[in-house]
């Protein structure tokens, strides 16, 4: 049953609106068989994506005592302003990494980190 979960939940997530209902119905049928096991409706995010997402949280939120100061002044900005503006630009980079990780796991449900951790 655990294996079924790993295989099928990513599959149903991938079924897009464009596909014909006849493709979807068999999936529903199989899922129905294992539904007693399935409390949570969605696949958990991959560990890689979560690690990527933690980077901006640490840099922007938890490390505030380290960067909340005026010196060094960079590009005319106090360091705390400069730091946060820089992370406006760096956060999308991290999340692009997370996006790639998620896309990888969705397309390859057999990957270990694509299932429930």
């Amino acid at each position: 049953m655990r294996i079924l979960d790993k295989y099928l939940i990513p599959c149903t997530l991938l079924v897009s609106e464009g596909e014909s209902p006849s493709v979807i119905v068999p999936f529903y049928g199989v899922i129905q068989a294992s539904s007693a096991d399935l409390g949570a409706p969605v696949r958990k995010p991959s560990r890689g994506a979560i690690l990527f997402a933690l980077i901006p949280f640490v840099a922007i939120c938890f490390s505030v005592p380290l960067w909340d100061r005026i010196d060094p002044v960079i590009l005319g900005l106090p360091f705390n302003f400069f730091w946060l503006i820089a992370w406006l630009l760096l956060t999308p980079l991290c999340m692009w990494g997370a996006y790639r990780k998620e896309a990888q796991c969705a397309s390859d449900p057999r990957r270990e980190d694509g299932g429930t951790p």
């Binding site: 997402a53 901006p56 949280f57 922007i60 939120c61 946060l84 406006l88 956060t91 999340m95």
Partner: peptide, 8 residues
């Protein structure tokens, strides 16, 4: 701080 993180 919150604006980039809310998208995360």
């Amino acid at each position: 701080g919150y604006q980039p993180l809310m998208y995360v």
